[in-house]
Amino acid sequence: MAVVFEKTKMLTDAVFHYCPGCNHGIAHRLVAESIEGLGLTDNVIGVAPVGCAVFAYNYFNCDMYEAAHGRAPAVATGIKRVHPDTCVFTYQGDGDLASIGTAEIVHAAMRGEKITTIFINNAIYGMTGGQMAPTTLPGMKTTTSPYGRDTLQCGHPVRMCELLNTLVEPRFIARGSLSSPKEINRSKKLLRQAFELQHEGFTFVELLSTCPTGWGLTPEQSQQWLERNMVPFFPINVFREPNQMPEAAKKYTPDLKVSDDKPKEG
């Protein structure tokens, strides 16, 4: 009997604590399979966030750190500076990365840290019970936006791929989704590319994900809701890859002179 599908060795035997239908489990598997597929299992360190994925250090079968809320990119920077030839990744949610950790992710990307960040965007704070996140959609009801997110008070959601795409150093920026087998397969290719390009620079994959419990929908309804409501605002796209670099990625080396006038003699 040939194996068609089996659990990757890059995941431990720990049972996922996630809610039924939560996409974190899918994302974990894709990340683990990408690492295994690229033969990196013997040279990888991961950094878990604070949020629903806070227990990721129990799930990835490699050296793992548990970072303070929002600080994973800084922790990963410290690790990578010590182990420059080791694959280092951070796995973060939208509260962790796009709210308290905005400075850390922007500066890690700005410095061009050779790490891979997997950003799970499910438009809500899951672990703390369904509060509004920076990625919560306009009008979306949460436990801290009971009348719906009021864009006059809290503005519109933040698009992290587009934001990071204004920086020079990042080498790969893409957004995928986990809302169907087709999207899941595409997202796995994105993750594989991101890990493959890590030695060239900072790589970033945002994965739109469902939160059935937080959204108050069934797992199946959540997939439909995500495709109908999130994808239009968070377009699925490869924003940056080696043969498709935006203008913003152009390197710049000024001569740092004052002017071209010849220095006066004497």
């Binding site: 950094v47 750190y65 303070a68 600080r71 800084a74 922790v75 410290g78």
Partner: peptide
């Protein structure tokens, strides 16, 4: 040079863990 002292201490946490 980190972007803040908050980030700097977390870089220390990362490097010290090795």
């Amino acid at each position: 040079q980190a972007e803040s002292e908050v980030s700097a201490i977390n870089m220390v946490y990362g490097a010290a863990g090795t």
